[in-house]
């Protein structure tokens, strides 16, 4: 599988993608106030300081919403596919997206866990699957 739109890591996010490639789900933790944040960026929005470190968290969340896509927005991707919006358990207020990895549709607020998939060389995506599977 070749992605039409592979991740384009930038100077803030490259280390995050490298950790995902090692099947590690990490977010930033502010050195000053301890606030966790994602996606990666230099400043803590709570205390406006820069110093931070990576904090490995459990890749768990709950289902907030999902779509089943039909319109051919992505070149070469015509079959319906499901994108889920999950709320990270470890990071208050943080929503993340990924494809859905289960034969059945999601349920509202159900617990989910991340699935790391190396879709092509050096590209690992983070999808979501029911925690009870």
């Amino acid at each position: 599988m070749t992605l039409a739109y592979p991740p384009q890591p930038d100077r803030d996010s490259a280390p995050w993608w490298a950790r995902a490639g090692r099947r590690e789900f990490a977010v930033q933790e502010c050195d000053s106030c301890g606030t966790l944040r994602f996606p990666p960026r230099a400043f803590c929005a709570a205390c406006r300081r820069e110093a931070w470190h990576w904090r490995r968290i459990a890749p768990e969340g709950t289902v907030e919403s999902w779509i089943v896509n039909h319109q051919p927005f992505v070149p070469g991707r015509r079959d319906p596919y499901l994108v889920v919006m999950a709320r990270l358990t470890a990071v208050p207020g943080c929503l993340v997206h990924g494809n859905w990895r289960a034969a059945r549709p999601p349920k509202h607020l159900e617990p989910v866990v991340a699935v790391f998939t190396e879709v092509e060389a050096e590209v690992t995506l983070v999808d979501w699957t029911p925690a009870d599977v």
């Binding site: 739109y5 930038d10 907030e64 919403s65 994108v83 919006m85 997206h97």
Partner: peptide, 25 residues
């Protein structure tokens, strides 16, 4: 835009898709 890298690889690229996620929520 920086946030797109966490969306586009999953086929989440269009405004209709984002708003559909909000709508279902």
């Amino acid at each position: 835009s920086p946030e797109v890298q966490y969306q586009a690889p999953y086929g989440l690229v269009a405004p209709a898709q984002h708003f559909a996620l909000y709508a279902r929520a």
